[in-house]
Design a protein around this nucleic acid. Structure first.
Lengths: 239, 239
DNA sequence: GTATAAGGTAATTTATGCAATCTTATCTAA
DNA sequence: TTAGATAAGATTGCATAAATTACCTTATAC
């Protein structure tokens, strides 16, 4: 009896981690294209796969829907979201909009401690160039962008962007790795760091904007764009 | 038999509406301050109040959490979100960021049909001024901003903003009505319409930005702001 | 007298069974 | 042969019950 109670307590304390782990696993499967767009996702199936009941699975699926990773049709089923060129452009435009504003804000608000972290990231970028290691570059990239969102001081904006990031990573998986982009990306990042170091809002916003627009153009083939319309965000600066 | 099927179909189609209605009711109670910030919200209580089980209530609460209207502490409970001056500023800054970009985008993309709807809204604004009717002004305001989001062509941005709108309305309830603001608001709206009519992205963005910054300053007493830091969004244009 | 631990209570979280709904396939009639 | 209706199959949606967790109270030991 006592051993049983102990076991229950153990599973109980680990359950939260397990639940979160399952969610991350599901999310990763969609981002990594392991679950293909349009594919049906059944509650029952996932419940069996992960050995839990349908109730928490349902909850996870709602969260994934909120991130636009799945589409839920009432009384019918759940599907992995499609990612049309239009969808991709919407996500990337939103990113440009949010992160450009964040860079502007961060330029004024960033603390010396955060600035030191940024410089450390800058040194990692040097290492990435030296070793031509895209993994290091990618990780530094991720920390750079998140650190700027933190420095910008708008927690809601950061949460929104983190939601978008799931889809952005998914887009990366679709587009595949573009070799040769790393070095130019790093140069853009260093310009962003320099602008923040100078606490220059205009320059920081512009640097981030240019960087993200270039990233967008790389991820979204120009042929897919509707060229006759201006994008959601400005395509050039006139500061 | 046939009548039974008919009845089932009827209740089925009404069920969704009822569930949606309960959600809207809950949401309205929070926005209207009928449920006070910090107040505990129990699943059991709501389930009894609305005569449904806790499962759909849970689902609604998760949706409300996603809109930041409630805060869920795992294994503890659900609370109505607080709205500190910082929270208010975050929400309003996000709005400025999204809607300014939308106005820019809409200036290029807006169709003649949408432009005609805008002009109709403009005429409603004239009526509002003539009758000094803030209700008409508010309704025209709502349609104006949403129409611009539609014209901007970014469905995700529109959804995000609609989520923010719940909190923005809540902020309005807290701040109370400011008489005398209506006429200047309308003037700003007409400038936005004029800029869109000219298909001038810079002017449209600037007009929207100025309008929303003024709205923010009205809703958020300057004494609450941290004056030494630049906001998430630029506070002035230099076009 | 205070602090700590154990037990009880009230809430969420999970699991499971049942009902409602949608889709699809088959059968019949025109 | 095709169109429409009906029935069967599958899946979600809802409700209730069991389990777990967190908090609060109380009692005991130092």
């Amino acid at each position: 009896m006592k051993s049983k109670e102990k076991k229950q307590a153990a599973t109980g304390s680990e359950r939260l981690r397990i639940k979160d782990k399952i969610f991350q696993s599901l999310r990763a499967d969609i981002i990594s294209q392991h679950l293909k767009p349009g594919q049906t996702v059944r509650e029952d199936e996932l419940a069996q796969k992960y050995g839990i009941s349908r109730t928490p699975i349902r909850e996870m699926l709602r969260r994934l829907e909120q991130e636009d990773l799945v589409k839920i049709v009432p009384n019918v089923g759940v599907y992995v979201s499609e990612l049309t060129p239009r969808d991709i452009e919407e996500v990337l435009d939103l990113r440009i909009c949010l992160e450009s504003a964040a860079a502007r804000s961060a330029a004024s608000k960033i603390t010396e401690e955060q600035m030191e972290q940024l410089r450390e990231i800058g040194r990692q970028l040097d290492v990435a160039i030296e070793k031509q290691d895209s993994i290091i570059s990618f990780e530094a990239d991720t920390r750079l962008h998140d650190l700027i969102m933190v420095a910008a001081g708008n927690a809601r904006a950061r949460r929104l962007l983190n939601n978008l990031l799931g889809q952005i990573h998914r887009i990366r998986f679709i587009s595949g790795h573009k070799p040769g982009r790393m070095n130019t990306t790093i140069a853009e990042h260093k310009e962003i760091i320099a602008a923040l170091s100078d606490h220059d809002p205009d320059r920081a916003e512009q640097a981030m904007h240019i960087h993200l627009v270039k990233t967008k153009e790389l991820l979204l083939p120009q042929s897919d764009l509707d060229a006759k319309f201006e994008s959601f965000v400005r395509s050039s600066f006139s500061l």
